[in-house]
């Protein structure tokens, strides 16, 4: 906890949270956001750029930034780091070949200083697909136990297609952010 975060806690009046959704392309970020917002998920094109959704969740307002994951636009992720309270890293649990790539990008992202205080939720998506890895296996591959000990993180298996696990994951994220940011209330 740096001086900056203390000042932020004191200053924070409105119960707003900024959440950044990232992950490799084809992991299901946009589908997840639309699903928790109760929108139609049958036609979703790969995200060219980003989407923003404002969702009221319990007593908090979540500003969710869903940023495209194609390799070409990954370098733009850093434009969205400022003021991020929660980071959602989405993994395609059925894409075994690119897990190495996924691990590299995640650890690369977590080096970023502006994200050092953000709570990290890893969604092991596509659990409904036969042959997908379990959240436990994903945690091993991504070496989550090796993360910095000050990092608050959690991994949750989910399916953006059926909606299973999404609320569980976001419940944890919102709770964790709330306990950090609104501690002084």
């Amino acid at each position: 906890m740096g001086l900056l975060s203390i000042i932020r806690k004191i200053k924070r009046k409105e119960k707003e949270m900024r959440i950044l959704m990232v992950g490799l392309d084809n992991s299901g970020k946009t589908t997840i956001v639309l699903k928790i917002n109760g929108e139609d998920t049958s036609v979703i094109s790969p995200t060219l750029g980003f989407n923003i959704k404002t969702i009221t969740y319990n007593k908090y307002t979540l500003n969710i930034w869903d940023v495209g994951g194609q390799r070409t636009i990954r370098s733009y992720w850093r434009n969205y780091f400022e003021q991020t309270d929660g980071l959602v890293w989405v993994v395609d649990s059925s894409d075994l070949r690119r897990l190495d790539d996924c691990k590299f990008e995640l650890h690369n992202l977590l080096k970023e200083e502006r994200l050092s205080g953000a709570s990290l939720l890893i969604l092991a998506n596509k659990q409904d697909i036969h042959g997908a890895l379990s959240p436990h296996e994903i945690a091993k591959v991504l070496n989550l136990e090796g993360l910095d000990r000050t990092r608050h993180w959690e991994i949750v298996g989910c399916s953006a297609y059926t909606g299973a696990g999404l609320l569980e994951g976001f419940d944890w994220l919102v709770q964790d952010i709330a306990s950090r940011i609104y501690m002084l209330d």
Partner: peptide
């Protein structure tokens, strides 16, 4: 439903997609 094509050279794709192929 979704099609993503990376690093393809000189190939033909006959597609039916619900969203925009990239």
């Amino acid at each position: 439903h979704q099609i993503r094509i990376h690093r393809a050279r000189g190939s033909d794709f006959y597609l039916r997609v619900r969203s925009r192929p990239i």
